[in-house]
Design a protein around this nucleic acid. Sequence first.
DNA 1: GTCTATAAAGTGATAGAC
DNA 2: GTCTATCACTTTATAGAC
Lengths: 188, 188
Amino acid sequence: MTTSRAEARRLTEQRILDAARRLFGEQGYDRTTIRAIAAAANSDAGLVMRYFGSKEKLFAQVATIPADGPITGSPAEIAKLLTAGLTDKLADEPTAALAALRSIFTHPEAGVEVRAAMTRQQQQVAAQLPGDDAVLRAALIGAITLGTVIGRHLIHLEGLATATPEDITAAIEPLLSHLIQGTPTTTP
Amino acid sequence: MTTSRAEARRLTEQRILDAARRLFGEQGYDRTTIRAIAAAANSDAGLVMRYFGSKEKLFAQVATIPADGPITGSPAEIAKLLTAGLTDKLADEPTAALAALRSIFTHPEAGVEVRAAMTRQQQQVAAQLPGDDAVLRAALIGAITLGTVIGRHLIHLEGLATATPEDITAAIEPLLSHLIQGTPTTTP
DNA sequence: GTCTATAAAGTGATAGAC
DNA sequence: GTCTATCACTTTATAGAC
């Protein structure tokens, strides 16, 4: 039971980070108080401030959207990468991302974080899609992903909250493929 | 210039409601203060409280999701109704809905409001879809709608924010049709 | 009908005792 | 290293003057 002072500090710091991620994800930035975080981490508000400087900085440290890997290749490969990424996002609660996601509409910094992550992926995808409405279709791919993740993890929509990630992805895959290939203008 | 007292009151009340709808829609519930609403309505905080009782009640009055008409008929008719509804939601900023939408993740009451509206439509649609995964597909229709509206009005995603509602709907229509008809299990 | 003054409670942040 | 006490500020909500 020899916890050095430095190690003890590292541990409390970690407990605070975990509690902050969880609470920010559950209630959003504004409704989560430093006091509540401290209490959940079995610590106190003073320490939280001392370690992380401000509520804002603590939020920035725990509310991050993990960047997806590069999305490139043939249309079929792109489809595969996108569905794989979606399955990931649906599988286990992405705690850090949820913290950013939940605050996206009310906290400016969370907004730019999510927007940046989405734009990053969208531009990457759009560059490889055929057709002159590639940007719109890439945006729709992002919108579908966003709507599905929100529907499952934040709104808990019946049908999305309970189904397995594989079932959901299977139902979405054809939609993504359609968007990737582009709409051939069929003459009526 | 004969504005009776009753009429004057009605006018200020309306100004307050308009300002509240706008500010709640722009900043969400928590970040919008009664003082700010009063200022935007050229009134004062005391009056706002006097007229509406509490911030909560004022929010409940202005943050509502307008119910869509009944969605029923043949698969083709359902598709038509859904795309028409989507075009509406994309056309002009749905101020009242945005107020509820922006607070959906941080304000409990806004959450149930949006969730109720989505579940209502989802159950209606699911009941008319073929296949044993009808609930999931109906949920996906809702998720796509939600993601698209959010991407356009709240995140202002490149490609979604600028395109015309008709262009967006045209790109989404085939996806909805696919979900409505159900995935015939094609043997490979 | 309208607005000022203030109460009561909670917030992020700081200083300093242990 | 940890925690208590407190500051300075903002919030909703209320009472009452004009």
